[in-house]
């Protein structure tokens, strides 16, 4: 450590010496070099943990490699892709996933926006209400799945017990084809509606007050104000929330694993759950890699189309 710079001088006759100039940076380390030095650890981590595995999965997707059988990977080019795209099993899981995504995200959007709208109109207790509504989102999906599994148990569950006290019959929530998928949608909605609510609330808070004031002066109705001021201004933000939720819902695994194991039969098996089975039951690594890559591609393409729509909306 260098000595402190004297503030006074022992010799009043002398002019206090100025602080010596900072030593120039080594010529070898330019600004750009410094930037690279700071960025490279993160860049290397990203390369090792994300980029390399993605490229490696891409390579394996063109082979018949199996992680447990060992031996060399033989190139089969688009064999895995053709098999996946023409498989009736995959089509069935894609349909299940589509129904799930539309059902869950649709319900969450309506409920999330409605809750956010009601909260935004309150002047007192808004913070407390928002925090309480956010609690489900903070829980682990596995924990959520486990306690909903107990609550939805046909014999001992609290939901059927409540239905019973209302004079209604027992419902087999998790073991019947239709109710099982509905149960998944309900549980996912319980957990993730707060996410949509949070983003919608941010949008609603950002709507300029003077617009409402102007509408009031013009004696515009409540519905008119909602339809022509609130909704158009919140809509783009809401669509971004829907995009995030749709991507999340598309790769649903944990709730299915805990609540239904894909059953009854395979009626609640989503694409992600099916990839898991392909990857770990038979250790068909090549096929599972191709399956994963295709899922990523689907998400990227749909996201691009969606973003274009969003941009057009903004421009409009």
């Amino acid at each position: 450590m260098s000595d402190p710079v004297p503030l006074t001088t022992d010799h009043p006759g002398q002019v206090a010496s100025a602080t010596p100039p900072a030593r120039g940076r080594s010529r070898r380390l330019s600004d750009r070099g410094l930037a690279v030095a700071f960025i490279s650890p993160a860049l290397l981590l990203l390369l090792a943990m994300s980029v390399f595995p993605l490229l490696w999965a891409l390579y394996l997707s063109f082979t018949d490699y199996s992680a447990t059988r060992g031996g060399p990977a033989h190139f089969i080019w688009f064999g895995n892709y053709t098999a996946i795209l023409t498989s009736a099993q995959v089509h069935q899981r894609a349909l299940t996933t589509l129904i799930y995504v539309i059902g869950a995200v649709g319900l969450q959007t309506v409920l999330g926006f409605a809750i956010a709208y009601l909260i935004s109109r309150r002047t007192h207790g808004r913070g407390l209400l928002t925090t309480l509504f956010l609690v489900p989102m903070m829980l682990s999906p596995v924990v959520v799945g486990l306690f909903w599994r107990f609550m939805l148990d046909a014999q001992f569950g609290v939901v059927n017990s409540m239905l019973g006290s209302l004079g209604l019959g027992q419902v087999e929530w998790l073991t019947r084809q239709r109710t099982a998928l509905v149960s998944l949608i309900v549980v996912d909605t319980w957990q993730w509606t707060p996410f949509i609510m949070l983003i919608a609330l941010a949008g609603l808070t950002a709507v300029p007050k003077y617009l409402y004031e102007a509408a009031s002066i013009d004696r515009a109705s409540e519905w008119f104000r909602f339809r022509n001021i609130t909704l158009p201004l919140v809509w783009p933000l809401l669509l971004i929330a829907v995009l995030f939720r749709a991507i999340e819902a598309f790769r649903l695994f944990d709730l299915v694993y805990i609540l239904t194991s894909g059953g009854p039969g395979v009626s609640t098996e989503t694409l992600s759950f099916h990839v898991y089975k392909v990857a770990f039951l038979g250790f068909n690594t090549g096929t599972a890699s191709a399956y994963g890559i295709l899922m990523v591609l689907v998400v990227i393409v749909l996201t691009q189309l969606y973003l274009r729509y969003l941009n057009k909306l903004k421009e409009g």
């Binding site: 087999e172 073991t175 019947r176 084809q177 059953g263 009854p264 039969g265 395979v266 039951l281 038979g282």
Partner: peptide, 22 residues
């Protein structure tokens, strides 16, 4: 060696039959 896949096929189909899905 194919046991894991054989048992999965049987499990899911028997479960489907027991729960009215097939």
């Amino acid at each position: 060696p194919e046991y894991a896949r054989l048992v999965n096929i049987e499990n899911t189909n028997v479960n489907a039959a027991l729960n009215g899905a097939k």
